[in-house]
Protein backbone atom coordinates (compact mmCIF):
# COMPACT_ATOMS: atom_id res chain seq x y z
CA UNK A 1 0.00 0.00 0.00
CA UNK A 2 1.33 3.44 -0.84
CA UNK A 3 0.30 6.93 0.26
CA UNK A 4 0.99 9.86 -2.01
CA UNK A 5 2.98 12.89 -0.95
CA UNK A 6 2.55 16.35 -2.40
CA UNK A 7 5.47 18.61 -3.09
CA UNK A 8 5.70 22.37 -2.82
CA UNK A 9 8.42 23.42 -5.18
CA UNK A 10 9.38 27.04 -4.94
CA UNK A 11 12.91 28.35 -4.63
CA UNK A 12 12.61 29.40 -1.02
CA UNK A 13 10.08 26.96 0.27
CA UNK A 14 10.42 23.37 -0.94
CA UNK A 15 8.27 21.20 1.25
CA UNK A 16 6.81 17.72 1.44
CA UNK A 17 3.13 17.68 2.29
CA UNK A 18 1.17 14.75 3.65
CA UNK A 19 -2.58 14.95 4.24
CA UNK A 20 -4.12 13.19 7.18
CA UNK A 21 -7.78 13.13 8.26
CA UNK A 22 -8.55 13.33 11.96
CA UNK A 23 -10.97 10.66 13.15
CA UNK A 24 -10.67 11.72 16.77
CA UNK A 25 -14.19 11.83 18.25
CA UNK A 26 -15.93 15.17 17.59
CA UNK A 27 -12.79 16.50 15.83
CA UNK A 28 -13.36 15.10 12.34
CA UNK A 29 -11.52 16.87 9.54
CA UNK A 30 -8.43 17.10 7.36
CA UNK A 31 -5.01 18.28 8.50
CA UNK A 32 -2.46 19.64 6.04
CA UNK A 33 0.89 18.57 7.47
CA UNK A 34 4.51 19.16 6.55
CA UNK A 35 6.40 15.89 6.53
CA UNK A 36 9.49 16.75 8.53
CA UNK A 37 12.14 14.09 8.92
CA UNK A 38 14.00 16.51 11.20
CA UNK A 39 11.22 16.37 13.76
CA UNK A 40 11.16 13.35 16.08
CA UNK A 41 7.52 13.97 16.89
CA UNK A 42 4.20 14.78 15.26
CA UNK A 43 2.77 18.13 16.30
CA UNK A 44 -0.75 19.39 15.63
CA UNK A 45 -0.51 23.14 15.11
CA UNK A 46 -2.35 25.83 17.03
CA UNK A 47 -4.48 26.64 13.97
CA UNK A 48 -5.47 23.00 13.39
CA UNK A 49 -6.07 22.33 17.10
CA UNK A 50 -8.33 25.39 17.19
CA UNK A 51 -10.07 24.62 13.88
CA UNK A 52 -10.85 21.00 14.80
CA UNK A 53 -11.52 21.85 18.46
CA UNK A 54 -9.11 19.20 19.70
CA UNK A 55 -9.63 19.09 23.47
CA UNK A 56 -6.39 19.57 25.40
CA UNK A 57 -7.70 20.40 28.88
CA UNK A 58 -6.69 17.70 31.33
CA UNK A 59 -4.03 16.23 29.05
CA UNK A 60 -0.46 15.69 30.20
CA UNK A 61 2.01 18.50 29.40
CA UNK A 62 4.71 17.71 26.89
CA UNK A 63 7.92 19.47 25.92
CA UNK A 64 7.17 22.80 24.21
CA UNK A 65 7.68 22.85 20.43
CA UNK A 66 10.71 24.93 19.53
CA UNK A 67 11.99 26.38 16.29
CA UNK A 68 14.40 28.98 15.04
CA UNK A 69 13.52 32.50 16.12
CA UNK A 70 10.51 31.47 18.13
CA UNK A 71 9.96 30.88 21.79
CA UNK A 72 8.67 27.52 22.98
CA UNK A 73 5.08 26.78 22.01
CA UNK A 74 3.25 25.00 24.86
CA UNK A 75 2.10 21.48 23.99
CA UNK A 76 0.13 18.63 25.49
CA UNK A 77 0.33 15.02 24.54
CA UNK A 78 -2.71 13.22 23.16
CA UNK A 79 -1.84 9.55 23.56
CA UNK A 80 -4.55 8.05 21.40
CA UNK A 81 -5.02 10.42 18.48
CA UNK A 82 -6.77 8.70 15.58
CA UNK A 83 -6.51 9.64 11.93
CA UNK A 84 -6.98 8.19 8.49
CA UNK A 85 -4.41 8.14 5.73
CA UNK A 86 -5.49 7.38 2.18
CA UNK A 87 -3.94 5.50 -0.72
CA UNK A 88 -4.35 6.65 -4.36
CA UNK A 89 -6.96 3.91 -4.88
CA UNK A 90 -9.08 5.34 -2.04
CA UNK A 91 -8.27 2.73 0.58
CA UNK A 92 -7.87 4.17 4.06
CA UNK A 93 -5.76 3.06 6.95
CA UNK A 94 -6.72 4.10 10.47
CA UNK A 95 -3.69 5.18 12.48
CA UNK A 96 -3.69 5.53 16.25
CA UNK A 97 -0.62 7.08 17.78
CA UNK A 98 0.43 9.70 20.32
CA UNK A 99 0.67 13.22 18.95
CA UNK A 100 1.62 16.53 20.51
CA UNK A 101 -1.03 19.23 20.31
CA UNK A 102 -0.43 22.94 20.82
CA UNK A 103 -2.05 23.93 24.09
CA UNK A 104 -4.24 26.82 22.98
CA UNK A 105 -5.36 27.65 26.52
CA UNK A 106 -1.77 28.09 27.73
CA UNK A 107 -0.77 29.81 24.50
CA UNK A 108 -3.43 32.48 24.90
CA UNK A 109 -1.84 33.58 28.20
CA UNK A 110 1.49 34.27 26.47
CA UNK A 111 2.70 37.43 24.78
CA UNK A 112 1.11 38.57 21.53
CA UNK A 113 4.21 37.98 19.39
CA UNK A 114 4.45 34.37 20.48
CA UNK A 115 0.72 33.83 19.91
CA UNK A 116 0.91 35.36 16.42
CA UNK A 117 3.95 33.25 15.53
CA UNK A 118 2.44 30.07 16.93
CA UNK A 119 -0.58 30.36 14.63
CA UNK A 120 1.75 30.65 11.63
CA UNK A 121 3.47 27.33 12.30
CA UNK A 122 1.87 24.42 10.41
CA UNK A 123 1.20 20.92 11.67
CA UNK A 124 4.19 18.64 11.35
CA UNK A 125 4.27 14.91 10.85
CA UNK A 126 7.50 13.53 12.20
CA UNK A 127 9.74 10.52 12.27
CA UNK A 128 7.53 8.96 14.97
CA UNK A 129 4.80 8.48 12.34
CA UNK A 130 7.10 6.82 9.78
CA UNK A 131 8.55 4.57 12.46
CA UNK A 132 5.27 3.56 14.12
CA UNK A 133 3.57 2.87 10.78
CA UNK A 134 6.61 1.11 9.29
CA UNK A 135 6.69 3.34 6.24
CA UNK A 136 9.53 4.33 3.98
CA UNK A 137 9.59 7.65 2.20
CA UNK A 138 10.40 8.18 -1.47
CA UNK A 139 10.74 11.80 -2.61
CA UNK A 140 11.55 12.86 -6.15
CA UNK A 141 11.47 16.60 -6.71
CA UNK A 142 11.77 16.06 -10.47
CA UNK A 143 8.65 13.96 -10.69
CA UNK A 144 5.66 14.70 -8.44
CA UNK A 145 3.93 11.40 -9.01
CA UNK A 146 7.03 9.56 -7.78
CA UNK A 147 6.81 10.84 -4.23
CA UNK A 148 5.06 8.60 -1.76
CA UNK A 149 5.18 6.64 1.47
CA UNK A 150 5.29 2.89 1.17
CA UNK A 151 4.86 0.11 3.69
CA UNK A 152 8.07 -1.67 4.57
CA UNK A 153 8.07 -5.28 3.50
Amino acid sequence: MIFNLELIKTKDAERVIFNIFSMYPRCIGGIFTILDTGSPRTIISAADAFRLKIPVNGLEDSRPACGFGRGGIPCKILHNFKFNIKSPDNKTRLVEMPVHVVDITALKKMNKDLIDNAFKVPSVIGIDFLRSQKLKMIVDFENDSSSYLEELK
Partner: peptide, 19 residues
Protein backbone atom coordinates in the same frame (compact mmCIF):
# COMPACT_ATOMS: atom_id res chain seq x y z
CA UNK B 1 -17.82 24.84 9.24
CA UNK B 2 -14.08 25.04 10.01
CA UNK B 3 -13.51 21.26 9.83
CA UNK B 4 -13.88 21.39 6.05
CA UNK B 5 -11.49 24.28 5.47
CA UNK B 6 -7.72 24.48 5.21
CA UNK B 7 -6.27 27.45 7.04
CA UNK B 8 -2.63 28.10 6.22
CA UNK B 9 -0.15 30.86 6.73
CA UNK B 10 1.72 31.53 3.48
CA UNK B 11 5.33 32.33 4.30
CA UNK B 12 7.22 34.36 1.72
CA UNK B 13 10.35 32.49 2.62
CA UNK B 14 11.97 30.85 5.57
CA UNK B 15 12.28 27.47 7.11
CA UNK B 16 9.97 25.55 9.34
CA UNK B 17 11.94 23.82 11.99
CA UNK B 18 10.16 22.26 14.89
CA UNK B 19 11.36 19.75 17.39
Amino acid sequence: QLNDIIIQFIPVKGEIILY
